[in-house]
Design a protein around this nucleic acid. Structure first.
Lengths: 252, 252
DNA sequence: CCCGTTAACTTGTTCAAACAAGTGCCGTTT
DNA sequence: AAACGGCACTTGTTTGAACAAGTTAACGGG
């Protein structure tokens, strides 16, 4: 274990133990050394070791209980914030070449739906972008995105065919910190059909996303429609670690 | 704060502070009392208070940092394990009357797909149930569920029109502890169309679920197809608290 | 051989002290 | 008026002690 002077010891222990579990050095079900042994190995006090173990217990990586030595668990599936929020970054992470074709970028009055999602009045000006997103040469998703004016106006100086709007806005200091995602299914409309090469009426997996600043001001609303055969969303839950995904009733 | 002798103090503090935040007594953005003040109020040592605060920080309910008093955050959306896993319980939780009409319950050889999901050989016997699920009188979902034989055979002594299979199996001691959920969109087939009252080919929101024991043995595989206008799935993520939902590429 | 008891070991809880790093406010100086 | 410095307060880290609750293995007796 290399010596680092920039991280507190409890964090370094957490990282090291997590690495041993996720790398398979301590595979799921493996009996982990006792606290006393970890204190000796890492030359740390028991309080510090327990702090690291507590963090890892909350992640599900450590199982066990009073009187029994800890056992390695399994990490929950997850993706980094930016990987989940940015199609470009996600495509890169799966070894695919992301592509985009901008069909339109416009400043216009917000529709009632868009206004509601962005906390604006209907008719307030927004910037809207319509893009086809590709994996390699394959059409994967149609993206209709609306931005509040302060952020959206920056896009007129950006080549929206060059890559990630998310990354560009972050690089311009726009605070994109929180996302709320709603997943459902819709029928492809004429435009979807044309862009994705599917029959109008056929099923698309839709993700609607509101991206906000850390303090909760909405900045972006996007309606992304995926070709279902290319993509799905996966989550795990357990008795001990509930999923943060909720099934939400909507009006019929 | 009532005195309870059955919970450790740090847990009681965690629960009390969480309740104050989620109830709105300490609304989002509210400056929470300092650790010293909390120690005085709860008559606890600083270590105990910090343990509670650490748990709540990991839940996103407490924000702030060194030198600054803590500030109330927001709880991530979540549902209890059983509410998410059981349509019956979920319907109840939203104040709707759950209903079910069993169309078939059969013991039969597993198809290759079902076998793969349940860790069986194709042709191994499974018990399969086909049900229409309703909210009130409204068709909401078609559920095709396959069980390994040990669990599934119990269902021949259960009235599958009376309610939750999940609850029944748990009451019989079947260990249903872990779920893995995959969400995508499919076109309604003839049977879906007939049961749900939609056109074949129209979009349905599909959730496929593998339910396993705590040690990971698959017990149930279900293919649930929701009428999209009635239901969606919602999740939130932030820079600090990533979503456990992952966007997964599938073969074209 | 089986069962009960005990001891050694384990994790879980609570408290306290000491030090470090950071914030914010107030007073003084420019 | 603005900037700087100092101080009181804040949170973050680490150590250690003491006690409680639980597990497991070994030993002795029936």
């Amino acid at each position: 274990m290399s010596v680092s002077h920039f991280q507190p010891l409890h964090q370094r222990l957490t990282d090291e133990i997590r690495a041993r579990i996720t790398s398979g050095t301590w595979p799921e079900g493996f009996q982990i050394p006792s606290e006393a042994e970890l204190c000796r190995e890492f030359e740390a006090s028991r309080g510090t070791v327990r702090q690291a173990l507590s963090t890892l217990r909350k992640e599900g990586l450590i199982l066990g209980g009073r009187g029994k030595q800890p056992v390695a668990g399994r990490a929950a599936l997850s993706q980094p914030f930016t990987t989940f929020m940015s199609f470009t970054e996600w495509a890169g992470s799966i070894g695919r070449t992301p592509g985009q074709q901008t069909r339109e970028i416009a400043k216009r009055p917000a529709s009632p739906d868009v206004a509601a999602q962005l906390g604006l009045e209907p008719g307030d000006q927004v910037v809207e972008v319509l893009r086809l997103r590709l994996l390699g040469d394959m059409p994967a998703m149609v993206e209709r995105t609306s931005f509040v004016l302060d952020a959206g106006r920056l896009l007129f100086d950006f080549d929206t065919d060059s890559g990630s709007i998310f990354s560009f806005l972050k690089s311009k200091g726009i605070d994109l910190s929180r996302g709320k995602h709603t997943i459902d299914a819709v029928a492809a409309d004429e435009l979807d059909g044309e862009l994705l090469g599917v029959e109008p009426g056929s099923p698309l997996l839709r993700e609607r996303r509101v991206t906000s600043s850390a303090s909760g001001e909405p900045i972006e609303f996007s309606d992304d429609r995926y070709v279902p055969g290319l993509t799905n969303f996966t989550i795990e839950n357990t008795n001990e670690h509930r999923a943060n995904l909720v099934r939400v009733p909507t009006s019929a």
